[in-house]
């Protein structure tokens, strides 16, 4: 085993034993790159030095969580997904008097606002509650503020239109110099809070769970456990939407989901068709 891999194991142990954060079941290649990035960000020189600070330096763990989280997101990422949600999922949700949506791993909140806009335009937002969760407090704070760089707005405006938006994206924000601020009315039914998918439990009965590009950081065992958590959180017939390149073929828990649009990774709980397990 090379020295760096040993240092990473020690890092993971320190996070676990000292701070109660469990990264043992994250996919190792991504985790390694992020730890290396942390060394550079904090001019630590080596992972061992990072570990020393993690053990001894008050508050350093928060910086580390922020570095391991990398809350990269976009509004209306993969526009066809939002179109499909509008056409195939919202009409079913419309039959419920109250709608609960869990957005797990909401990062800087771009998807939360995208979802709120989608629901607003479908006339469903008034009776919807969105639970937007992440395990990175700093990211949750940014998400709640809804302030983003103006240079991203053009791409997002294109995504919005491709995703079936009915107005103009600029109707939803005010622009000031280098920043745009999303209309804060969009978050009137959003609750942001810290929830760790590895250690925390079911907290609501959801009709739709959106968890895109989060499980890609987990190994097969943790992906499977998290899909089990989603299954247990969803009402019968509730929907699950994952990132468009995610693969659930290795997860036994995925057997309880049927396909709504397999290509876009939109599934329905208890929809009968058991998914075959890969190899």
């Amino acid at each position: 085993m090379d020295v760096e891999d040993i240092e990473i194991e020690l890092f993971v142990r320190a996070m676990q034993l000292r701070h109660g954060h469990d990264f043992t079941e994250y996919a190792p290649a991504s985790l390694k790159r992020r730890v290396q990035q942390l060394v550079r960000t904090h001019h630590a020189g080596s992972i061992s030095e990072l570990n020393r600070r993690l053990l001894h330096e008050e508050g350093f763990v928060t910086r580390v969580i922020e570095g391991l989280s990398v809350p990269v997101s976009e509004m209306f990422r993969d526009p066809p997904v939002f179109r499909a949600l509008r056409d195939k999922v919202l009409p079913v949700l419309a039959s419920y008097p109250e709608i609960n949506i869990w957005q797990a791993g909401c990062a800087h909140g771009q998807e939360v606002y995208s979802l709120a806009i989608l629901l607003e335009e479908a006339g469903l937002y008034e009776r919807t509650r969105i639970y937007a969760t992440d395990f990175n407090d700093a990211a949750l704070q940014v998400a709640a503020e809804g302030i983003y760089a103006t240079r991203d707005a053009r791409d997002w405006s294109r995504n919005y239109i491709e995703g079936g938006g009915q107005k103009s994206f600029s109707d939803y924000y005010s622009a000031r110099y280098d920043f745009i601020k999303l209309d804060q009315r969009l978050r009137r039914n959003v609750t942001f809070f810290n929830h760790n998918l590895v250690t925390d439990e079911v907290f609501c009965e959801a009709h739709l769970i959106l968890c895109r590009n989060v499980l890609i950081y987990f190994n097969n065992a943790l992906q499977d456990r998290t899909l089990g958590l989603f299954r247990d959180s969803l009402v019968r017939g509730g929907f699950l939407c994952l990132g468009t390149r995610e693969n659930i073929d290795f997860s036994p828990s995925a057997a309880s989901f049927g396909d709504i649009d397999a290509g876009l990774r939109i599934y329905q709980a208890g929809a009968g068709v058991a998914r075959p397990l890969a190899r």
């Binding site: 992020r34 990269v72 890609i216």
Partner: peptide, 9 residues
């Protein structure tokens, strides 16, 4: 030797 994907910066 299995693939993984991420959306890091």
């Amino acid at each position: 030797a299995h693939f993984s994907l991420n959306v890091d910066a």
